[in-house]
Design a protein around this nucleic acid. Structure first.
Lengths: 140, 140
DNA sequence: CCTTGAAGCTATAGCCGCTAGAGAAATTAG
DNA sequence: CTAATTTCTCTAGCGGCTATAGCTTCAAGG
């Protein structure tokens, strides 16, 4: 059995985050020692490692909740799982696309700046006048 | 003079957001009509358009605050402006890099899935065992 | 066995950048 | 003049934690 600190070390999840996950029901309520401290077994270790990995891949907690409940039903078809993963992939790709547009625009702005006074600064000027933008870049 | 709603339409910023910007001091306190409603002139319109554009480019509000106060000092050299812009560019590039790693990993996971039952699902399996990952992908 | 310091506990508040809601007053269109 | 829309203030909530305060429990050393 692991204390919350050991569990955190083993999974790379911070202690307050583990308690937070328990609070929102992503982890089951932990068993307690005689002195009321949380104790964890292998099952929770695996579950938390799963959560951590999914978080690293950017899955929102709600999606992780769904993935976890799906993983408890091994006989079901895994189409639902793939749907969630593909949705996440799409979300990631959308963010990449958007960020690349920002990157291009920032580059352009910075490259045009002759580094004189603020009066002549292309960065300030471009920010002040959207019409100076080369590309579309919708709201963040 | 514009009402808050017109200002919002003109700049593409939502009404509560305008009030929020005023609250945090990003916009000056607006003048008021006889009936206590906010009225805006061209100056605030320009300032808000500037803020909107910078937000679209992902600048955090604090950076925008700095850019605005710099833009009020036209005689100063614009190195400080460029520093802020370059920092933002770096931040954007870092996020792109990270997201691309996620994208690759998600792709790999999804492509390996034979779409049978959850028991054999590579997505679930990979999430559960970080060692199955091809690439490093640090915390989000 | 006793002390010390680390690690644990609960509860609350804060971070960013908004967004949503309530309930009331002002304005505008017909 | 009425009805619909807009605006007002205030408070609370979103995601996903993180930080603080003030306490208790535990593990190791002397």
């Amino acid at each position: 059995m692991l204390s919350i600190g050991k569990l955190g070390q083993a999974t790379g999840v911070k202690v307050p985050t583990i308690r937070y996950y328990e609070q929102i029901g992503l982890l089951p309520e932990a068993g307690r020692s005689a002195g009321n401290q949380r104790l964890y077994g292998r099952e929770t270790l695996d579950r938390l490692a799963f959560i951590r990995h999914a978080r690293e891949l950017g899955f929102p907690l709600e999606a992780i909740r769904d993935l976890l409940s799906l993983s408890d039903r091994p006989d079901r078809p895994c189409a639902a799982v793939d749907d969630i993963a593909r949705a996440q992939l799409k979300a990631v790709q959308a963010r990449i696309g958007r960020l690349k547009a920002l990157e291009a625009e920032l580059h352009r702005m910075i490259d045009q700046c002759a580094c004189g006074t603020i009066r002549d600064c292309r960065v300030i000027e471009t920010l002040g006048d959207h019409a100076l933008c080369a590309h579309d870049h919708g709201p963040a």
